[in-house]
Design a protein around this nucleic acid. Structure first.
Lengths: 235, 235
DNA sequence: TGATATCGTATTGTATGCGATTATTGAAGA
DNA sequence: TCTTCAATAATCGCATACAATACGATATCA
């Protein structure tokens, strides 16, 4: 138990617990987040829960409306596009920073990682998705740029949310082969090619996992399938 | 008085007040930030002050150490380099996004802005610095990408802090001519050139304003000039 | 029956209080 | 004079308390 009576760490524990719960969709997008029940569940007061909400709101994982509390963020398609655009820019930067600077140990670690991805790819479980995400985090870590890492983590989290809403069920977001090519380019020190690969890789993720033109952001369109399944006939 | 009895807005007021105070160096880097006195000064309780500290800590403007409270962040040179690297990446993205998409009204607004910069450039005051910063914020706004805007604002804030510590006194950070060239490229729809110009522009800002190899990050070196001015003789 | 008003409850926003940790002052000893 | 240590004061971490607002249910009226 990492309850840790140490001061300041309980606050962080609450933050991390909620963050994980949101990313793993234990708390689904749009779900209401009452302060006292969550605090009670985690064994802390509302104070710490609110503190965590604040951080999560900055990161775009929860929405915070005045006098009506917090709920898990429900990004619009427009926000989703924004997030992916920024993500591509950030990860391109990662690729450029890393090209040629990869140590042998780092390259080995990455290759070990894609091997794990290969194994998990067959079963198409949440394990596969987690590994694919971690690959990008690992790359960001290797730049040694703390701010870049933080931003990449943030957009990755938000991408998880976005895919939970708009993604097709069992798409294996990242193609392992694309990860392999990327490592190759990084190793060769070809920054331009690495950046280009990364860019197209992430672009591919969007088109693979996102049903772009479908899923209108209007309530009518969200309800349409339910109406149909009930035999209703909206105009 | 924007005291605003409205709920949730007082918290934001505290956040913004502290943020401005830090950026404008009313609160200097490294300065201690006691919850009580600040709350008393702003007419709110420690609760809201702490909330603001949390947000500012996420954004890297304050440091938050367990059991010893908050202080204005004092970025190391390494952190400074990280921030500038990410900033270049982000603003390159801005340039690419904006190239060719600039409306006539937007172009006019930017040109009006650089004209103001021209005027202020003579007096080399803080006005000049503020305008130079706002130019970049305006560009980010024009992308329509809220996340990109937030990130650019964040790195800009941190750059203010960094230049306050490591910058030479009256360097007029941005060359107005470079801003003009950038607008030109954006107008022409030449994304690659715009990105390239932005990249070199920001690179130039660093070399112009930052005394890179000097300014050691050791306390001894920070204190050296003070020691000398007091006639002391450190080993 | 349907719409609106009103009251009670649940939940949020903010302040305050208490125990714990850290900084500071001053005095005693080397 | 410089160090060491203890007592006090200041500050923080967190929980709780209280006021204000929003939500929901029942009652009232058309």
């Amino acid at each position: 138990m990492t309850d840790s009576r140490q001061p300041g760490l309980r606050a962080q524990s609450v933050y991390r617990a909620l963050r994980r719960a949101i990313i793993e969709q234990a708390l689904k997008p749009g779900m209401k987040l009452p302060e006292d029940s969550i605090g009670e569940q985690l064994g802390v007061s509302r104070t710490l829960v609110r503190e965590a909400f604040g951080r999560l709101a900055v990161e775009g994982l929860v929405e915070l409306k005045p006098n009506r509390g917090a709920s898990v963020a429900y990004p619009t398609l427009e926000e989703a596009r924004d997030v992916f655009d920024v993500r591509r820019g950030l990860e391109r930067l990662v690729a450029e920073n890393l090209a040629g600077r990869l140590t042998a140990a780092q390259a080995a670690e990455l290759e070990d990682h894609v091997r794990q991805e290969d194994k998990a790819h067959g079963q198409d479980g949440p394990e596969s998705i987690r590994l694919a995400g971690e690959f990008h985090i690992k790359l960001a870590e290797m730049t040694g740029n703390a701010l870049l890492l933080r931003y990449v983590q943030e957009v990755s989290s938000r991408c998880s949310l976005i895919l939970a809403i708009y993604g097709r069920p069992h798409s294996s977001e990242c193609a392992v082969s694309e990860h392999r090519q990327l490592i190759e380019a990084l190793r060769a020190g070809d920054g331009a090619r690495a950046a280009h690969l990364m860019d197209h890789h992430l672009q591919a993720v969007v088109t693979r996992a996102l049903l772009t033109p479908r899923a209108e952001r209007d309530i009518r369109d969200l309800l349409a399938p339910y109406a149909l399944s009930e035999g209703l006939n909206p105009p």
